[in-house]
Design a protein around this nucleic acid. Structure first.
Length: 107
DNA sequence: TTTATGGCTGTCA
DNA sequence: ATGACAGCCATAA
């Protein structure tokens, strides 16, 4: 019923994530109309080109941690991007979701 | 067309 | 608190 692909819906949601905030894959999937398909949200982000304007780094897993998508430490790059936006990580490299998780509609 | 897989999530130990 | 298992279904081959 849409001319947009699932990926594009996901990108549209991710683009709405304010700076200094994060959202989980499941949350993005739900907002994109794909409730319960957290993985698809992850795949969509995985498919993003390096030149994208989508703030994919603001999307993390339900544990408030960064999913290691590549060996070696690419996750570190994502972490730096988040820290640059003012998001703090605890000693285990996890984000305080209670404080930084994006809350659409309720501000 | 079918088959395999997966940037996850939730539950149980 | 962490670790392991199974499941949901779209995308890619």
């Amino acid at each position: 019923m849409s001319e947009l692909t699932s990926y594009e819906r996901i990108y549209a949601v991710v683009r709405r994530i304010p700076r200094g905030r994060v959202a989980t894959y499941g949350q993005v999937a739900t907002l994109a109309g794909l409730e319960g398909h957290a993985r698809q949200a992850g795949y969509a982000l995985h498919a993003l080109p390096a030149t994208t304007a989508v703030p994919w780094h603001r999307v993390i897993n339900a544990q408030g941690a960064i999913s290691a998508r590549a060996p070696g430490g690419d996750g570190l790059h994502q972490r730096l991007l988040l820290e640059a936006e003012g998001i703090e990580f605890d000693a285990r490299g996890r984000i305080r979701l209670a404080r930084y998780q994006w809350r659409p509609r309720g501000q």
